[in-house]
């Protein structure tokens, strides 16, 4: 009986030994991975943003976001806008008439507001609550105008998916992770105007 007990004890201690050994191995492994990653880590978060200079306005920003409507919306860099009467981001090409009737406008949701400033200038503002991020105006503005309209991931809406599902399909590889404390990639000129 005593013999058996002793053997049991021996067995146990061998198993315990193995167990502690394994614990140590796992612990060390975890620590080294942690150490490696910690070493290259930053205390700030990263968020998704698209580089407007790479974007080709394929239209996927509007449809591939996990949110509907998309977290991507149009932004206007007023500082580089030409305030054109015939805005190629606002009017369909060729325009039937320079009035704000829906059939003349590019934006499918009438999210762009056109206001008269002075002769011959008009200001164009985006109603973010209507914009769906389709990029039609961006394409229009970029092809004939100054390119002052561009798309951005709006960080009041974006839920910061671990893998942005637009980034996965963006054909221009325009998406990158940027630090959360400066989460926009505005057009350079727009930034300069401050």
């Amino acid at each position: 009986m005593a013999e058996a007990d002793k053997e049991k004890n021996n067995n146990l201690s061998r198993r315990d030994f193995l167990r502690y050994g394994f614990r140590a191995i796992i612990g060390l492994g975890a620590l080294s991975v942690a150490g490696h990653t910690l070493f290259s880590s930053k205390s700030h978060d990263m968020v998704w943003q698209l580089d407007p200079d790479k974007c080709i306005q394929c239209g996927r920003c509007a449809t591939r976001c996990v949110l509907s409507p998309s977290a991507v919306k149009c932004v206007h860099a007023f500082a580089i806008c030409g305030y054109c009467d015939l805005c190629s981001g606002y009017f369909r090409q060729p325009p039937f008439a320079l009035d704000t009737a829906a059939e003349n406008r590019l934006c499918p949701t009438s999210a762009i507001k056109r206001t008269y400033v002075e002769d011959p200038y008009y200001e164009y503002t985006i109603d973010q609550s209507l914009c769906i991020g389709c990029g039609k105006c961006v394409k229009g503005c970029g092809s004939f105008g100054n390119g002052s309209l561009f798309l951005q991931v709006m960080h009041d809406r974006c839920v910061n998916c671990n893998e942005c599902s637009i980034a996965v399909t963006c054909p221009a590889k325009a998406y990158t992770r940027v630090p959360a404390h400066s989460p926009y990639l505005l057009k350079k000129a727009a930034e300069g105007s401050g």
Partner: peptide, 23 residues
């Protein structure tokens, strides 16, 4: 830029580009 920034005669001030803050 194809169209230069206009010289406004009126009081018009060029608005800033607004982007919502991140959470």
């Amino acid at each position: 830029y194809r169209f230069p920034r206009p010289e406004f005669k009126s009081e018009y001030e060029i608005p800033k580009t607004e982007v919502p803050a991140a959470t």
